[in-house]
Amino acid sequence: MNHSFNAGRLVKLLALAPLFLVGIVNLAHAEAWPTKPVTIVVPFPAGGTTDVLARAIAVKLGPVLGQSVIVDNRPGAGATLGAALVAKAAPDGHTMLMGAVHHTIATSVYKKMSYDFQKDFAPITTVALVPNVLVVSTSKPYKNVSDLVADAKAAPGKLSYGSNGNGTAQHLIGTQFQQISGTTILHVPYKGSAPLTTDMLGGQIDMSFDTITPVLPFIKQGKLRPLAITTAKRSSVLPDVPTMQEAGISGLDIGTWFGLLVPAATPKEITQRLNKEIVQIIKSGEFQKQMAEIGAEPVGNTPAEMARQIQEETEKFAGLVRAGNVKIE
């Protein structure tokens, strides 16, 4: 009787052994991690807000982890190229994506994607929120939104706006701006803020709805003129610039958030450690001051809160994409 009981118990224990081993291996990986440099993939060229935030985190995260943290710029396809690379990366905590609101829009805009933004990534934390701003070159005659709308209505398709790519927040803001104002403005997609701003300063395009960070230095130098903030409240770094609502474009309220994610199968011990270390950086006085200077509002939330934010924004933008009939093959 005892023999059969022990044998049965042994069979059960052997059946559970692989589960115990998986747990031990995961724990060992988490304790040893990181074993090599950590990479933050930025799906835009250097110089834009995504890049600036990634580098601000990387500088402070490296010493905490005891490994260098490298920023790898992989622009293209409306930020989906870099995201696809991270989705396929080894889920060992050595590769992160500096994701953004653009990824929640791309889900509805692109017909075919090699990854599912909600299923193939594990959120770490939202780093910051940055308002977008409608800017024109100071060589243009527009002093306010009304002037620009009047000119756009007088000659449909004559004016153009640049974005950081098809399916990005700037693209959708431009689409919604046209819907509300009853204008037709040509959309010109770029791979990122740097080439877009260069062309705007050179007069190749008339305006952009970019985030504040990359255009702020040119606003301060008097080369770009801000006409309106695209969020419901004014920006602390541009307090004299009206919101779209105040400028007569009612119902336009879109800003840009940026946050870190890892491949979905990354061990929970690693994602928890990353959240803890990165949130501490975000909450630090030095980082907060740095963000204030570039017009960013630091966040530093939990993975669950970021996941909820992604789900809500994906649903919201799906509605806007349908309403604006925005499609990309």
Rank of each mutant, 00 (worst) to 15 (best):
186 L>A: 13
183 T>A: 02
178 Q>S: 06
162 G>C: 06
166 N>Y: 10
152 A>V: 06
172 L>P: 00
183 T>C: 03
153 K>L: 09
187 H>P: 12
167 G>I: 00
183 T>R: 01
166 N>K: 08
166 N>I: 01
151 D>P: 02
185 I>M: 03
178 Q>H: 01
186 L>H: 12
165 G>Y: 05
158 K>P: 12
164 N>V: 03
156 P>H: 03
162 G>W: 01
163 S>L: 04
178 Q>Y: 05
161 Y>L: 05
154 A>M: 14
174 G>E: 02
181 S>Q: 05
186 L>I: 10
150 A>W: 08
185 I>G: 04
159 L>A: 03
183 T>P: 05
160 S>V: 02
187 H>D: 15
151 D>T: 14
158 K>M: 12
161 Y>G: 05
154 A>P: 15
165 G>D: 07
151 D>E: 14
151 D>K: 15
173 I>M: 11
152 A>C: 11
162 G>H: 02
172 L>N: 01
152 A>F: 10
150 A>H: 14
170 Q>F: 05
153 K>Y: 09
155 A>H: 11
179 Q>K: 12
168 T>Y: 04
161 Y>C: 09
184 T>D: 11
161 Y>F: 11
183 T>E: 11
164 N>Y: 11
147 D>Y: 15
166 N>L: 09
156 P>D: 08
182 G>Q: 10
158 K>Y: 10
150 A>K: 15
150 A>D: 12
186 L>T: 15
163 S>D: 06
168 T>N: 00
177 F>W: 09
155 A>I: 08
180 I>T: 12
179 Q>H: 11
152 A>D: 04
180 I>H: 02
179 Q>W: 06
156 P>V: 05
158 K>I: 11
170 Q>E: 15
178 Q>V: 07
175 T>D: 13
151 D>V: 10
168 T>V: 10
163 S>P: 01
156 P>M: 10
184 T>C: 00
174 G>Y: 02
165 G>T: 05
180 I>Y: 00
169 A>Y: 01
187 H>R: 12
148 L>E: 13
164 N>A: 14
182 G>D: 06
156 P>L: 10
168 T>A: 03
149 V>Q: 08
171 H>T: 10
185 I>Y: 02
167 G>L: 00
176 Q>F: 11
169 A>H: 01
186 L>M: 13
171 H>G: 03
173 I>S: 05
161 Y>P: 03
157 G>F: 07
165 G>N: 04
184 T>K: 12
152 A>K: 04
149 V>Y: 06
156 P>K: 09
173 I>V: 15
157 G>T: 09
179 Q>N: 09
161 Y>R: 12
187 H>I: 00
152 A>N: 02
167 G>H: 00
164 N>M: 15
165 G>F: 03
158 K>W: 10
169 A>M: 13
147 D>W: 14
186 L>G: 06
150 A>R: 15
171 H>K: 04
182 G>K: 04
163 S>T: 05
165 G>Q: 11
173 I>A: 07
164 N>K: 08
177 F>Y: 05
159 L>P: 00
166 N>P: 03
149 V>D: 04
156 P>N: 11
151 D>F: 09
168 T>R: 01
187 H>E: 15
183 T>S: 04
172 L>Y: 00
184 T>R: 04
170 Q>N: 14
153 K>C: 07
149 V>L: 08
151 D>M: 07
183 T>K: 04
